[in-house]
Amino acid sequence: MQNSPSYAIESNDLSIHYGAFTAVKGVNLKIERLKITAIIGPSGCGKSTLLRSFNRMNDFVPGCHATGELLMQGQNLYSKDIDPVEVRRKIGMVFQKPNPFPKSIYENIAWGARINGFKGNMDELVEQSLRSAALWDEVKDKLQESAYALSGGQQQRLCIARTIAIQPEIILMDEPASALDPISTLRIEELMQELKKNYTILIVTHNMQQAARASDYTAMMMIDDQRAGGVIEFDDTKNIFTRPKDKRTEDYVTGRFG
């Protein structure tokens, strides 16, 4: 079954299990190309687990496996002939806590490119990626210094630059601003609006205002009585925050619980 070209990735009854326990159950999401989709929900509802299943990061968790389909250009990313390394090459990831490599700023970007067999001009790629991540002006004079000398917000933008350097199609962001101060958070949000022109973005966030401000679509997740998380509502962000269909979504976005 071919998925419509306007969708970057599409999940089809996707469930994620830890051994016998089902953590996320029956997710059907169609992620639109060049849009920002936010995943919100209370703690422990499986937001991060779902996000990580999109680039098969969960493969490293012992006992974790997925059932159902995750389709990208008609191909199931969980089928046996797909190499997870290839998936991660196409679907980049930015983590909750900034995690630059303990190397120079330059190397942080060049490494990913190099291991993926990049043949172009490395200096250009580094500059371009840093510019796209709105970090170039701050670091252009200290490219050889350690990435650890940067502030938390700068480190997170470096991680974004590192991700876009390998030119993925989709960028996953796992609460990218939760460890940052409000000003750095704002800069990341502005950056996301820029990146949207070239990349499809999927973001997990705890911050309701962030989802409302920054995203085009929002998926609301909640756990059921078997403690399995699932998407209970998926719609335009505007609809989710102004006239949600599900009572639980309404309670959550209005701050009545969670």
Binding site: F60, V85, R88, W111, N116
Partner: peptide, 22 residues
């Protein structure tokens, strides 16, 4: 730290590249 391994996997590194370089 695991975050370093995840960072490497996140940019498309194989297990061996992650071990050898990081």
């Amino acid at each position: 730290p695991d975050s370093l391994r995840q960072a490497a996997y996140g940019v498309g590194a194989t297990r061996w590249q992650t071990v050898w370089h990081h």
